[in-house]
């Protein structure tokens, strides 16, 4: 188990290095950083001096190592646009995005898994067909349209929920701002979380349904029934657990995408998260922010995958022993 974890960890490090290289190359070669920093009337001599001061004349490998060393210390330089350290900018936006993503994922799981189990078990009932029809809408409608529709119906016409922003937030230890602790913060979360999680929810539902249908046909389910086990024990104890490995994988990967693609939802709801920051960075060619964002998202994906791998082992004994024997 520990050897397994270490191996996966080394692999994860490798992936991070490659992403760091891409991020670094972007920083270094998409346009000239010096051009971004100075005005049009700066003399070539001054530019050269700046270039020297910034270390841009050093060999690429040295620059890359410097980039890595700084990245490890969470130093991504100064934003061109805000003239503030990128790390601080992202840190101030990160809680908003993480809270939104977490709630969306929770919503997707809490609604998607039961719906999937239901449609798998009772696939011919009217309700199951209804769920499937809804899921088709969830899969095919673009996120921004869902967001705008929700705002139009729930906020504008019904006036039940706020249409933008995070509401009031509470700061915890100066590091984290949370919307979980205020009424307006929680209310503001609902619409964006549904918008962001709807696609994942339908995906999870369809996945669980497909897996359930498959597992219910297996011999061990037939044998479990032949032993007279209760419906609940068969459906939830024996069948559902066997659908979990693929569900965990997809949910994990989807959590990564939820965070990465919160951009659209954050734009629609003016949610003050990283996605909004990233969009502004793209508009202003603020490369330090883009590079840091790329690294951060890659890190989240890698970290989630790592956790997913460990979870497999917890769910499926065959993976555990297969690894131990090697």
């Amino acid at each position: 188990m520990i050897a397994f974890a270490i191996r996966r960890f080394v692999q994860a490090l490798g992936v991070m290095l490659v992403v760091a290289l891409i991020s670094f190359l972007m920083f270094r070669f998409v346009g000239d950083p010096v051009n971004q920093l100075v005005g049009v009337d700066t003399s070539p001599a001054e530019r050269e001096a700046l270039r020297q001061a910034l270390g841009l004349n050093d060999p690429v490998m040295i620059q890359f190592s410097r980039f890595i060393v700084r990245a490890v210390q969470i130093d991504f330089g100064i934003s061109y646009q805000f003239k503030q350290p990128v790390a601080a900018l992202i840190a101030s936006r990160l809680p908003a995005t993480l809270e939104l993503s977490f709630v969306s994922a929770l919503f997707a799981l809490a609604v998607g898994v039961p719906m999937g189990v239901y449609t798998g078990l009772y696939r011919n009932t009217l309700l199951a067909r209804g769920f499937l029809a809804i899921s088709l809408i969830g899969v095919s409608l673009p996120t921004f349209l869902i967001g705008i529709l929700l705002i139009f119906v729930v906020s504008v016409n019904l006036g039940w929920l706020p249409s933008f922003g995070r509401g009031e937030t509470v700061s915890i230890g100066g590091m984290w701002t949370t919307g979980f602790l205020t009424r307006s913060g929680l209310l503001s979360l609902i619409l964006p979380a549904i918008t962001l999680g709807l696609f994942q929810m339908t995906l999870i539902m369809r996945l669980v349904r497909g897996e359930m249908l498959e597992v219910l046909r297996t011999d061990y389910i037939k044998f479990a029934r032949a032993r007279g086990l209760s419906r609940r024990a068969v459906n939830f104890g024996h069948a559902l657990k066997n659908t979990l490995v693929p569900v965990i994988t997809i949910t994990g990967l989807q959590l990564g995408s939820i965070i990465a693609f919160a951009i659209i939802t954050e734009t629609v709801f003016q949610w003050p998260g990283m996605g909004l920051l990233f969009l502004q960075a793209v508009q202003n060619v603020d490369i330090p922010i883009m590079a840091a964002y790329l690294l951060l998202i890659a890190f989240l994906f890698v970290a989630i995958n790592f956790i997913v791998d460990l979870l497999y082992v917890a769910v499926d004994p065959r993976i555990r022993l297969g690894e131990a024997r090697r």
């Binding site: 011999d219 061990y220 032949a226 032993r227 066997n242 769910v315 499926d316 004994p317």
Partner: peptide
């Protein structure tokens, strides 16, 4: 019928490799 299965009628299937739930 469920109460009869297992208690009064036992059943054995063809493939022992797939008759047992792999996760338990």
């Amino acid at each position: 019928m469920r109460r009869i299965r297992g208690r009064r009628i036992g059943m054995i299937f063809q493939d022992p490799l797939t008759s047992l739930n792999p996760l338990y």
